[in-house]
Write a protein that binds this DNA or RNA. Structure first.
Lengths: 210, 210
DNA sequence: CTAGTATTGTGAAGTATTTCACAAGTAAAT
DNA sequence: ATTTACTTGTGAAATACTTCACAATACTAG
């Protein structure tokens, strides 16, 4: 696997999109797919598709196109989706609870295997078949269950109190739903999901055209 | 306001970040702030901060820095946040319902004023003080309530059935939570929020370092 | 076997975005 | 008044990303 190169973030999200398209193509029983077909379904250009794929190898055949099923497994491997990931959800407010019960993660290789909160009310209770742990137990549970990724859905005020616990827990990546900017060592990958920022971007675009 | 220029998407999300930082700065009672201070709090460079701001005007004073409160109102206006936005939520499953009850939107200028679903169960019921309408009523309600933005949290299978209704409803922008790529005229702005894609990006990064 | 059509992989060219670097402005200290 | 320490705004340079364009390859038809 030709690693070490610096791959643009944008290329990675396009690969995610291609993956979905290719899964549909496989399901439709097609035996080949062209970069042009992938491009029109994903809203980019054929050259972009080929360039993105060429970052990781040459997977097609000139004159013929690509094999959808081969490409699915190549991209899965590239994205690290040839295995399942164990996820913890930290913060079981409305959003956190909604995520726990959402099948979409399981269906795409992400298993929610542990829940954390601080509320006396919630700790010890059960949600979707999982026991809620106190956040203080995170190191032990992460170690025991070999958890690698945490989804952080606590109220922003709670972040300072728990960020140290996360840092020392053994967690390797965080999907941060809070508007706080997490200060974590760069051995821990952080991705931010911020609804309000997306709405603000929408607000900007709508305002642009008087 | 110097419009017409093409502004990078990335610049806009940084402005959102600066806005939060500046609100904190104002709350802390600071009377000036430097591009360097903003940069270190937002994880970028001072030059980037100045360049981003200079896309819209010159708001600082050489030798002194910027006035946080002035900058807050400048950025609010740039992002179109000097007014409130009326939002509809389409699809009241777990995620949609969680969003409706989330105060974070209201606090930042976004008012959820209408709800839509298709389920016999839900239509007619009340959620967080709002009546749930059938999606067939969207045009009327959007018009009556002057709604501009829709948050789409339906199951992906439901998208084909309702996309035409959205297109013709008068909605100006859509925040799309489904993994579907929406085919809408480019008079309607679309922003996509996709948890699974973010997790896949995390998976990629974690896999990179064997 | 040749011509015609399709399609990849990839350097090179073209754009876009970020970073550099410095003139110009401000204030405080001496 | 002059020096020193800061700091913005912005062209120019550097870097990053996307698109172009074409040789190389594959297949089909005649």
């Amino acid at each position: 696997m030709p690693n070490k190169k610096k791959i643009a973030e944008s290329a990675i999200s396009r690969l995610s999109v291609y993956l979905r398209i290719l899964e549909d193509t496989v399901a439709a029983g097609e035996s080949t797919v062209s970069s042009q077909a992938m491009a029109s379904q994903s809203g980019t250009t054929a050259a972009q598709v080929r360039k993105d794929l060429s970052l990781f190898g040459s997977f097609g055949r000139r004159g013929l196109g690509y094999s959808p099923s081969d490409l699915v497994s190549r991209i899965r491997r590239i994205l690290g989706l040839h295995r399942r990931w164990k996820i913890a959800v930290i913060g079981l407010g409305r959003v956190g609870s909604a995520l726990v019960e959402h099948r979409g993660f399981f269906d795409r290789g992400f298993d929610i295997v542990a829940l954390f909160d601080t509320s006396e009310f919630k700790v010890g209770s059960n949600l979707h078949g999982l026991q809620v742990h106190h956040i203080d137990e995170i190191s032990r549970v992460v170690h025991d269950k070999k958890i690698e990724v945490a989804v952080l859905t606590v109220p922003v005020e709670a972040v300072p109190d728990i960020i140290d616990l996360i840092r020392d827990s053994g967690i390797k990546g965080v999907l941060n739903w809070t508007p706080a900017r997490l200060t974590l060592p760069d051995t821990i990958e952080v991705k931010n999901v911020n609804m309000v920022m997306e709405l603000e971007a929408l607000s900007f675009k709508l305002s642009q055209r008087e």
